[in-house]
């Protein structure tokens, strides 16, 4: 038993989270439609394409690629006459990137905050894989219960000065900083 405990305690520098592929599939369905919820989305198009930027860490690079594949398969003909462009960006090589929406794969809090600062500068909507990121200032995440519903961090939206359509307010649960699970 001692040997087992020693083995468990041996490791440091830990970093792992299983990404649920079904959840990615759901995110792929909703991401382009959430991007359209920005009233000024047309101004942020990239050469006429709706632009989704996916931030990933090395650990979830394969999942980021799967998300891109799912989005491009589901929206092969684009949305609202706009082709869709999905860009993958590593958290370790952050740079100012224009886009309609930023998608945040799980990462440590420091990296998440760095991306949120970028989003604030560019006035870009942010959508997180994890609801926990709302506490850091991400704008949208999903609540998966009996029904799937967006959770909207209205404070973050206001701080970022993104103008969102009323319909998003109407269909979302408003994030309460105290408790969202």
């Amino acid at each position: 038993m001692k040997k087992i405990l020693l083995l468990l305690l041996f490791y440091s520098h830990i970093f792992a989270l299983s990404i649920d592929e079904s959840l990615l599939n759901i995110h792929a369905t909703l991401l382009p439609k959430l991007a359209l919820m920005d009233s000024n989305y047309k101004e942020k198009l990239n050469e006429g394409s709706l632009s989704i930027v996916v931030f990933y860490s090395r650990m979830n690079h394969a999942s980021a690629k799967l998300l891109r594949k799912n989005i491009l398969t589901k929206y092969a003909n684009g949305i609202k006459n706009h082709p869709i462009k999905v860009t993958l960006l590593s958290y370790h090589h952050l740079r100012h990137t224009k886009g309609n929406i930023y998608y945040l794969m799980p990462a440590d809090t420091k990296k998440i905050k760095e991306v949120l600062i970028l989003a604030q500068k560019e006035k870009i909507l942010t959508f997180s894989y994890l609801k926990d990121d709302l506490a850091q200032g991400s704008m949208i995440a999903l609540s998966i219960g009996a029904k799937v519903k967006p959770i909207l961090n209205l404070t973050a939206v206001k701080e970022c000065k993104v103008s969102i359509r009323d319909v998003l307010l109407k269909i979302s649960t408003i994030y309460n900083n105290e408790e969202v699970n």
């Binding site: 759901i26 369905t29 439609k33 359509r165 109407k170 269909i171």
Partner: peptide, 15 residues
């Protein structure tokens, strides 16, 4: 947009 989004939410709820 609202109808389209609500339809998508039904779709993903089913998933």
């Amino acid at each position: 947009l609202e109808n389209d989004f609500l339809q998508s939410l039904d779709e993903v709820s089913e998933i």
